[in-house]
Design a protein around this nucleic acid. Structure first.
Lengths: 209, 209
DNA sequence: GCTCAATGTGCCACTGTGTGGCATTTGCTC
DNA sequence: GAGCAAATGCCACACAGTGGCACATTGAGC
């Protein structure tokens, strides 16, 4: 892991670090907002924390916040969005051959390997927030759905029924692996949970009452 | 179809019609809100329609609305919630034997058979709203997730990884079937799409690049 | 080093959603 | 019809999110 630095992740771009002072400054407020958000929401709860509490802490005006993030939910889900962003670039870089389930799983494992220590600290906190707040849960699921669309474009014809179903299954499997991981959240355990869940896909279809 | 009348569906109960005038009146405002919501949102768009427009049309105060529905999204998703409500009762009534995929699929088909004509008119409109509004999409997905939890309890141990995955797969398959159905939305075609999607589950896992 | 344009930011006012309190009305019961 | 409980309406409020405009900071040209 730790191949991509936080700065690059937060900028959501694949280019190098921003050269100009102006862009670096903007990036720092973005980082501060995302980190403080996880921290504050984790303490008081997402719904119980007014956005103003975050703005006062980071000392940023409401207007500036909404220029950086679309919503209160958006900033809370930064870590999750980073994951999928890296996943898409990973998918672009990998050769797509053999069973598509394996392509998806391997790209996911490679993505997990790319994330840095900082991310592995913020991501579990994000998951706990999502579990706790219905609003965040909805936003999280919607973001997954949007990513699925992107993945479908990269893996074939997005109008193909079987392909769409496959991607739905893979993302669902990923979510189930996360549920297994959530209790302890040891970074080293996550790939194991992912492998186990993906290898359980066929068996689950054969389940009997 | 048409086994359950709209009044019963909207009351979300399995008991008979409400006897008292008071309850019937309340039910009528609930119906009026749900129907007018679909109509208004369909015309002007969900996000572009203020809640006040709905309240003025139905001539109901804001306070009364929020005693009947949790949110603006809630009232728009009435048809979808009705479907899952009927699905759960159907699941309770059916004998659970054989492959669980088939149990789920058959309960779903039986549910579709139970819905009345009025529902088949409002449900496609609801789907179009969901496609169009990110907010509604999020709420819809979240509701599906909540239902999955209920289904897991009825089908076995909700902590079982394979069971949860199976249910995720089934709901995902249902959503894909809906995507296929959405263009024309002929009520008679829906069961066919459901059968097709469910029979494509195994093949999709075998997809190759 | 200074000016100028561009970009980022802060402040203010506004819309819209959702909630709590309280008086009023409406339907039910005796 | 009187009394009671439930539903409703109205008011004020908190919070999320947006648009407009002035101000400050940065980067570039001279």
């Amino acid at each position: 892991m730790a191949a991509a630095c936080t700065a690059r992740l937060l900028s959501m771009t694949t280019s190098g670090e921003p050269a100009t002072l102006r862009e670096r400054k903007k990036l720092r407020t973005r980082q501060a907002l995302a980190e403080t958000a996880i921290s504050l929401f984790g303490e008081r709860g997402f719904d119980a924390t007014p956005l103003d509490a975050l703005l006062d802490t980071v000392e940023v005006s409401r207007r500036t916040f909404f220029r950086n993030y679309r919503s209160k939910e958006d900033v809370a889900l930064t870590a999750a969005k980073q994951l999928w962003s890296v996943f898409l670039t990973t998918l672009d870089e990998t050769a797509k051959s053999g069973p598509l389930v394996d392509v998806f799983r391997d790209a996911l494992l490679a993505t997990l390997d790319r994330m840095d220590d900082d991310w592995y600290q913020r991501f579990p906190a994000t998951l706990r927030l999502v579990e706790q707040s219905p609003s965040l849960n909805g936003h999280s699921l919607r973001h997954c759905a949007e990513i699925q669309e992107e993945v479908a474009h990269r893996l074939g014809d997005p109008r193909d029924l079987e392909l769409r179903m496959l991607i739905e299954f893979c993302v669902a499997t990923w979510r189930c692996a996360l549920d297994e991981w959530l209790p302890d959240c040891a970074p080293g355990d996550l790939p194991g949970h992912v492998r186990r869940a993906f290898s359980a896909m066929k068996d689950s279809l054969l389940l009997r009452a």
